[in-house]
């Protein structure tokens, strides 16, 4: 049986910050503290490991880049998902590659949960504001109903982090503690690298849209490889 060392104060803080990063993406103010690199760093920072948080956030940026938020497209919610994933890796007490991959997948999964929860709140918003006659010509009624929608979104995001934080830590710890075969060590790295590279290719295409731009992606990859080699 695994325990998760987290105080009620830390849990409440994480939930409240979850509400704040959840609000940012759509409702208010789109300042992008809901981006994975920020939200996951906040999650890691709460539990004493911002480096782990940022690293998960950067992975999530690339993994989620395949679903850009254009037009009426459906895309995973980044803020609460990344905050939970960053906190989960920091709390898991392991910085191994499997724990990192586990956190990335936890974040990716919660992102889709978040997307479905947003759809539910949007239907509720329609009941509050979609008939202009309900305002009765009063600006105070417009503000009251609009702010009620924003409060609903905050509650939704806070609930996601509050409900999924501890289970996420348990999942990441379980993955980190999973018995590994000696000969498969490199295979884990290979699967991570190939998965990330493929998702980066997909994300680059989603942003680029024109096939002739791929040499720029390859040039960047070559420069990055040279940099990594130089640093080593």
């Amino acid at each position: 049986m695994m325990d998760v060392e987290i105080t009620v104060g830390e849990w409440l803080l994480a939930s409240m910050l979850g509400a704040l990063v959840g609000l940012d993406a759509v409702s208010w103010p789109q300042a992008m503290w809901s981006r994975p690199i920020v939200a996951a760093t906040i999650g890691g920072l709460i539990f004493g490991n911002p480096v782990a948080g940022f690293l998960v956030g950067l992975w999530l940026e690339l993994v989620m880049s395949r679903d850009p938020p254009f037009g009426a497209a459906r895309y995973p919610e980044t803020g609460p998902a990344a905050l939970t994933a960053g906190a989960a890796l920091a709390l898991a007490g392991s910085s191994s590659a499997p724990a990192l991959m586990g956190s990335v997948l936890v974040g990716w999964t919660i992102g889709w949960v978040g997307m479905h929860s947003i759809a539910v709140t949007r239907r509720a918003n329609a009941r509050l504001v979609a008939k202009p006659a309900v305002f009765g010509g009063r600006t105070s009624e417009v503000a009251r109903r609009h702010l009620a929608c924003i409060r609903l979104d905050a509650a939704r995001a806070g609930l996601i982090v509050g409900a999924l934080l501890v289970p996420s830590v348990l999942v990441v710890r379980g993955i980190a503690a999973f018995p590994r075969l000696e000969f498969a060590t490199n295979l884990g790295g290979w699967f991570s690298a190939v998965g990330l590279a493929a998702l980066t290719g997909i994300g680059a295409r989603a942003l680029g849209t024109r096939r002739r731009e791929w040499p720029a992606l390859m040039a960047g990859a070559a420069a990055g490889a040279l940099l990594a080699w130089g640093v080593r």
Partner: peptide, 22 residues
């Protein structure tokens, strides 16, 4: 788009290089 493609490739390569066992 052009600059972001270059940056995306570089970030992905650096992240992959960080994976333990590489």
């Amino acid at each position: 788009v052009f600059v972001n493609q270059v940056l995306m490739g570089a970030v992905a390569a650096l992240l992959i290089a960080r994976i333990s066992g590489l």
